[in-house]
Design a protein around this nucleic acid. Structure first.
Lengths: 225, 225
DNA sequence: AAAAATATTTAGATTAGTCTAAAAATTAAT
DNA sequence: ATTAATTTTTAGACTAATCTAAATATTTTT
């Protein structure tokens, strides 16, 4: 169980995990190259290496999927990333739109015990500052369903659980407007002309453009949790 | 001022800093190779690279010294290392003999602001869990003088400020005996036969062997601070 | 189902950091 | 002050991760 992967190998695993969750099928060389901002040829090389280590399953021209072990590793890196984000926001007074880059580095620190200690210190949080679920020690995480704010029914009570676009620009915009994870939200009117929404956000009436509504996830309360 | 050094380059700077402080002169290729557990030839290569970046001054066969910029960088890495150690001990409930390896990794995380945020969160500590001084934002640090316990005069009130040997074995030994940074200490009798010491440690009378006394630093209270 | 477009892999080169073995410089010993 | 021992540097090679350009597969279009 002593992995000892390089920084780069870990990032490939994370990228494969994230892409395969979206499409729920094998990940293409090109998509991976896009995500990691590198060349398809580099991706082929690295995937081969990961396949040799049994972290991925790969057949030429067929795309790549995570093996059981690869998935476990990917999840543990994601756990580390998200816990560090909680730490940075909760204790080092960063804003949620500032922490990603630092967490990208912290997530790779190797230690058998560090992340569990951090988890305990943070009192076992279940979501990170962007509203994404944090896997526990065993890799289990909340799977509350979410939908886009643009799809929320009129007068349905809900709350903001995440963002689709996590670009710096968008996060800063939300920050300026005082919109954050956990805020309560309810759509009171849908303008059919420009698809903008009139919503009650934390008891204030505000206007949300379609662009924004399409990039905010809200809790789908039809499902448990 | 945007350095962007590699993990390896940073470790070389730290090693040069630490060796040149001990001898207070240019550091030899061989000593550096010993410290970094690598070959002299590798050291020559890397020193050249650091010289090109103006981080060290180097003339063939003459050893190497840190430039002003190199020293500044080295100190900031040491600051980072020691602050992380404080965090690990104070908040993640590690023992002081367990934190070095993790801090070796954390110290290299790049961020303009991270370490200052951490410093504030920890309430600006001035010494790390091993008793070593933590440089502040501007690189200044406490310079209280220390001497070996073996050199402490009889009946002189003092306190433990650090260790000379920071091997895992020694730190574990201290831990088992309940000896820690900050403990008050006074030598009441020096046995000339085997050079062992009878000391009052935290109000308990204990026996200290020469080997241990030669590896424990105590505060030299002749000097301020 | 052949041609065109796209995706993927291969081949060969590059860079950072390291290594071994040999050469050159310095220091120590006689 | 030569010789011997040690230290340091040079030369050439290796590995990981990447890149460009060319070759090969696959998919899409007609």
């Amino acid at each position: 169980m002593k992995n000892n992967l390089s920084y780069t190998e870990e990032n490939y695993l994370k990228a494969i995990f994230s892409l395969s969750k979206k499409t729920d099928s094998a990940v293409s060389t090109n998509d991976l190259a896009g995500k990691l901002v590198t060349n398809p040829s580099s991706v082929t090389d690295m995937i081969r290496k990961l396949a040799d280590k049994n972290l991925v399953d790969y057949k030429k021209y067929q795309g790549v999927t995570l093996s059981k072990g690869g998935k476990k590793t990917a999840i543990s890196i994601i756990r580390s990333h998200r816990l560090w984000e909680v730490f940075l926001v909760k204790h080092l007074s960063y804003r949620w739109d500032e922490v990603h880059e630092i967490a990208e580095q912290l997530e790779h620190v190797k230690s058998e015990t560090l992340i569990d200690h951090l988890d305990a210190f943070l009192e076992f949080p279940t979501v990170d500052p962007h509203g994404d679920p944090i896997p526990d020690k065993d890799g289990n995480m909340l799977t509350f369903t979410k939908k886009l704010l643009s799809e929320l029914e009129i007068n349905q009570e809900s709350s903001i659980v995440g963002v689709r676009d996590s670009s710096d620009d968008f996060l800063k915009y939300l920050n300026n407007k005082g919109i954050a994870i956990g805020n309560s939200i309810k759509v009171v009117y849908k303008e059919s002309f420009d698809k903008s929404l009139e919503v009650i956000l934390n008891n204030n009436k505000v206007l949300i453009t379609e662009e924004v509504a399409k990039n905010l996830f809200v809790k789908d309360i039809n499902l448990k949790n």
